[in-house]
Structures are given as structure tokens and as C-alpha cells.
Amino acid sequence: MEQILDRPEFQSAVIPFVVAMLVYAGLKKLTAGAWIWALFAAFLISSSLINGTTLSPLTGTRKIILLVLGSLILAGLVPYLIRQVKLPRAAAPVLTILALLWVFGKVVARMDLIEIALFLAGGVGLVLWLTWTFGRIANDDSRLHSAGFTLLLGTGLSAAAAASALLGQLALSLAAASGGMLLAWVLQGKAVGSGRVSGSISTLPYVLSAALIGLAAIIFARLPWYALIPLAAIPLATSLVPVKPDARFLSALVNSLPGLIIALAVSYWVWQAGSSNSSGY
């Protein structure tokens, strides 16, 4: 059993996929935010298997794990804690930008002014763009989870190809959990329910995890910065799918297709670009 749990494909694909489905099935009648808790449970287990339970030393990667879990708790609790108050739209992007500064602060402190300006422009721009494009599909469960699934799939595969299996596995575990949600939506014939809450908090977990892991793969590993441009276009591409099939299976397939094409193309390109000296070490 222990050997199975040590295998990356179980840690970041099979386990989060199954856990997300089971938790959602168990909670769907209790709360509209079942999908958030399903993602939380899946990521909590996966990240514990991938990283171990230790948070010391508190590296950037471990900060990302804490922040993704924190964003899921926030998105899950806000509807209960603040029923009447609508959070400002800026709440989610501001929280994500603060998260960026916490994760990358140590590295940014060693940058020169031009590099700091480029980092801030790129990081803040990415967060605002993802917040806006995910906001466009926040009310459409099929599109929201299709975009989340394919964006994190592309981010994870690209990060793994860019020499950080750890970052790659974290993103892939979230992608697998989102895939489990999509399958639940297809099989159960009932809307997954985005647990829509104030402002952009409901899409915060997708925005924050994709932005942090994508930027970490650039700054801490060797993902070319321009690889994030097509990946960041995935939520917009998903929102532009012209057809809206009635059948849930077709809906999930059609909405995932643009993101899948982009994610796989970018991942293949990153892998090719970095594989000139690879011999399967």
C-alpha cells in the first residue's frame, strides 16, 4: 500500500480524482459549496502525500500549499460567515496579489528595480486577467470546472516539464480533483453547484492556484514566462465556446476541448524545448 501511495500517478491523479468525487457525492445535498470542500479534501490528501506533512522549512512551494488550502476554506466558509454582505469585487484579486508577495517576497527582495517592475506587472496582470476571465464563467458550472480542470492540467504538465515535479504534481492534483467534479456533474445529472458567493471569492481557488503555481514554475524552475500566455487564455477560450449542448457529457466535453488543446499543446512544446539533453535520468 505504501508503495502505491509513493507513486506520483496515484498521488496527483488517481487519489485526488476519487476523493473529490466521493466527498462531493457525500456533501452535495448538504451544501451548495460541496465542490469546494471536495477540492479541499482532495488537495489536502494529495499535497500531504506529495510534500509530506512537514511545513519546515517554509519554502515558497509549501506556502503555495497553505495558500491553496486557505483559499478553499475561505471560499467554502464565506457564504456561511457573511450571508448578507457582498464582498467587494477586488477582494479576491487583492488577496491573491498579497499571496504572491508572501510566496515570492524573498526572491523579489534580491531583484533589481526593472525585474521587480516586470514581476509586479506580470504577476498582477495575470491575477487580474484570470479573475476577470473566470468571473465570466463563474455562473456556468460546466464551463467553470472545465476551465479550472484544463488550466491546472496545462500548468501542471508544463511545470513538471520545466524541471519541478513537485509544482507539477500539485497543479495536477487540483486538475484531477476538478476532473472528478466534472465527472460527478456528468454522471449525477445535477449541477455541481459553484456555491456562488460574494464577489469573486468562489473562483479564488482556481485563480490563486493557477497564478501561484504558474509563476512559481517560472521563477523557481525554468518554465518560459511566455508559456503562461496561452495557458492564461484558457478561461476566456472556454467562455467563448459557441454551443451549449443539453447533454451534460457533451457539454463537459465541448467546454473542455479548447482548454485541453491549449494545455496539451503548451505542455508538449515546453517538454520539447527542455528535452534536448534528457535521457530519462
Binding site: V107, R222, N277
Partner: peptide
Amino acid sequence: GHEKRDQHLSSPDFLNAVEH
């Protein structure tokens, strides 16, 4: 002696050379 492996060892998976 293997560039790709050295990149991996420098990454957050092991030495996290950018951060440390």
C-alpha cells in the same frame, strides 16, 4: 554531469536554488 538532472536538483523539488 547531466544538465537536465542538474536543473531538477536546483528546482524546488530539491535545493530550491532560486529561493535559497
